[in-house]
Design a protein around this nucleic acid. Sequence first.
DNA 1: CTATCTTGTAAAAACGTTTACATATTTACT
DNA 2: AGTAAATATGTAAACGTTTTTACAAGATAG
Lengths: 336, 336
Amino acid sequence: MTCDITIKDVAKEANVSVATVSRVLNGLDRVSDQTRKKVLKVVKELNYVPNTMAASMITKQTQMLAVVVPEIENPFYTSVIKGTVNVAKEKGYHTFVFSTNDSESEEDAFFESSLRRNVDGIVLIGAHKDPEFYQKMNKPVILVDRYIDGCGLDGVIIDNFGGAYEATKYLIEYGHRDIAIITGPQTFNDGTERHWGYQQALKDNGIELVNDYQKHGDWFENNGYQSTKELMKLTKPPTAIFAANNLICQGTIKALRDLELTIGLDVSLVGFDANDLAEFVKPRVSVVKRPTYEMGTHAAEMLIEKLKQVDKHDSFPKKVTLGVELLKFGSVKYLG
Amino acid sequence: MTCDITIKDVAKEANVSVATVSRVLNGLDRVSDQTRKKVLKVVKELNYVPNTMAASMITKQTQMLAVVVPEIENPFYTSVIKGTVNVAKEKGYHTFVFSTNDSESEEDAFFESSLRRNVDGIVLIGAHKDPEFYQKMNKPVILVDRYIDGCGLDGVIIDNFGGAYEATKYLIEYGHRDIAIITGPQTFNDGTERHWGYQQALKDNGIELVNDYQKHGDWFENNGYQSTKELMKLTKPPTAIFAANNLICQGTIKALRDLELTIGLDVSLVGFDANDLAEFVKPRVSVVKRPTYEMGTHAAEMLIEKLKQVDKHDSFPKKVTLGVELLKFGSVKYLG
DNA sequence: CTATCTTGTAAAAACGTTTACATATTTACT
DNA sequence: AGTAAATATGTAAACGTTTTTACAAGATAG
């Protein structure tokens, strides 16, 4: 089980040409049953392992994919990665995983060296850059989670607007009118769409928007923590909070604990995306659950599908939007 | 920025031979300043990106590593992965990440296809198999977290014995004598060493071992949850619990919450490894903290170091043991 | 019994690099 | 000026595959 046995060794041992060995292994061309058996026997005997990289020089396919995330320690990304890697593996692809640590220069470096290594395609989760950059690369790219309409690339996103709308509507239906949102930057669709969903739900129910109730920071825990504290310091604090991603929600939970406010009693809370703390606290926090693993599997499937298409110009960019689910637990108080 | 420009195109455009271009790019051989500049200019103009895979056919180095974990969604593994990938990247290596989902057949499949792809080396976290299997592979392998002495492979582990000993001693010093341990299987050093540390601390303090206080299951949350419930049902329940990994600790915390027992008051608790819940609950749970990220960076450094050694038989197997730190918070009651 | 068609296999080119060797040019020293 | 040494560059082989082309042998048909 090493890689120092080559196809030539097999050919010599089996008294056939290397072409025949290749034919047996790849099964593309006709080979007589007799020689097939003979070759297979020798392959087993010598523990021959084909060299994919040498093959890739001819086939122009390395059977390697890359998946890029901003931060591998965020469980959301890990779950998407898992989906992508598993599907890739099933279909015979190996996957590079890379965390850009939210740095654009690291992202650049990664793309360069992925290109050098001739990856067949890239799954890009939480993209940073101008989409035109990714197009220039001339490799199939699937954007996940963040997407820019009209960029010409394929994408897998979730129903951000719908999720935020449902979450907010749920709070309104339970009698809340002073509803805050803590969210990230409005740079990409994830931020804007969730914000719109929140605003639209309020508007549709005749509730006017309050600036102080709309907190925009980054997507990290500390934003949730600080913003929650600020919200609760207002002369008229909100009765409910919508925390627009997993880390913000964790920050909010911690802040409320530190303020000695009880979730579902003093303050109602709905999160976006599952997280350890939301599941742990009593009452459990209601969240908009998104199909993280499936985002990964979809992305991999779309990417590999794209790789198979011979005429690459034939395919129009495809955007898939996956639905979300509002899980209701005891974190929202009924105000009547 | 694509890969369809080859070294030949550059050579032609610059009016030099491909050898010269290669020399300029790799800087091994002397080239005149004049031609160097000329070549570099053309490289930039054409956006030439060298093909690492083609080079690897000659150099026998693919500049690719693989890292294998049982479960990518466990934050412990993610942290180690991050360390490994970051160091690898710094040194010009790309890293495949693979989660075996705790299945031996998936691990097999991964090794086969890593071999096909000619990875230069492998970081194996939480190994499953006989070490002789890994040796047969004839590729540098670094074992992380789990290690078998005398296996002839390099390894990075942590001071399991010391950590468990300190944790248990800490409980004893606070007056506890009825101390339980919830741990995983005794198949590998991680399980056995932590168990020994616990036992030794008790012995050293003249406390006799109680069978009912020693729970062996798997390393997952549910074991922590169920075992804790069983422990607290005993006619004489323990006053303190040592939870021997991150997931077990989370299970214990959830069980105690569901039993409406207060940590640090009704039951004292020390965990092994950081986890979200231990940091969240009040009082915060004391844990043995291990340098997860550093385990990853060390492993990558050792692996890459090994790759550089020309005479591979010259190097004896090296095992590095990293220290741990006992973080004391309010989860341990002082019994006087 | 030739002409045509199948079938199975081999030979060789190609992929994009690196590198050992060869050759041409320059420099340095008598 | 003549030679040796040093420097710069080109030539070609090699890496381990796939794939095109060619060809031999056997089968089928007239």
